[in-house]
Design a protein around this nucleic acid. Structure first.
Lengths: 125, 125
DNA sequence: GACATTGTACTAGTGAACTAGTACAATAGT
DNA sequence: ACTATTGTACTAGTTCACTAGTACAATGTC
């Protein structure tokens, strides 16, 4: 995962990446996130930036934080729903781009198939 | 089209939007783009920002500029290829997100269908 | 109680992006 | 030659994001 300022603020990209960790089960409800200073080192950003990341996740209701203890995935997070929400957002973006280009759904799906077949994935084997 | 600093630099978003205009035929090869000051007004940005936009489009080989005359879509731009490239980039983003979420191609396609059916498009009628 | 770990607040600084404004250079039309 | 139109360069400023560093507060362990 590469942080790229041309794709928006770093802290939002990182918040998205942590959300993916939760969505795919790398982190479970109740799990503790890496401490601020540890994540800062891992991603080579400033600890204050990670504080912003964790603040954003808290605002989105995904985590809760306690000074002196850490930041935790909320117990009531529905991982499957989170995953579906992230994927549907990506799907919506794709369809919106097709719409903005004046293309039909069929044309969008055809383009998708071309990309699928161009990549070495299990969808192609 | 909404310019949102949280999605990266304004000038890159605008460059993408102009590229869409070309890709869907709103602007044809040889056509002149709106003058810098006019586009600035339309999108409520600074003319210097539009100069950056046009600079980026020139760097990408989509337009060429002449002081005193204007900025033009290059005659040799292949509109269909440009459209395909933009859509495939969007498709690749979508698939990459599915991959990052640890999902199979089938699951990705299912999520896409859900979004399709949730929207009032011709694909659903 | 001391210590380690964790989050937080703050100051001061840097850099990129964007803005406002002015003025100049090239081109085209009359 | 003059004017209008277009792009460009520049200065000076603001804002936001990020950084580096320091120090404090809360929590948990021993």
């Amino acid at each position: 995962m590469k942080l790229d300022p041309s794709r928006g603020p770093i802290y939002l990209q990182l918040a998205q990446e942590i959300t993916r960790w939760i969505a795919r089960g790398d982190l479970q409800p109740g799990d503790r996130l890496p401490p601020v200073r540890e994540l800062a080192k891992r991603f080579r950003v400033n600890p204050n930036t990670v504080v912003q990341v964790y603040g954003e996740l808290e605002r989105q209701g995904i985590t809760h934080t306690q000074r002196g203890r850490g930041t935790f995935v909320r117990e009531d997070v529905e991982v499957a729903a989170l995953r579906r929400a992230l994927l549907q957002e990506a799907a919506a973006s794709f369809l919106e781009e097709a719409r903005a280009l004046g293309l039909t759904l069929e044309e969008a799906m055809a383009a998708l198939q071309e990309v699928v077949h161009a990549r070495p994935t299990e969808g192609d084997r």
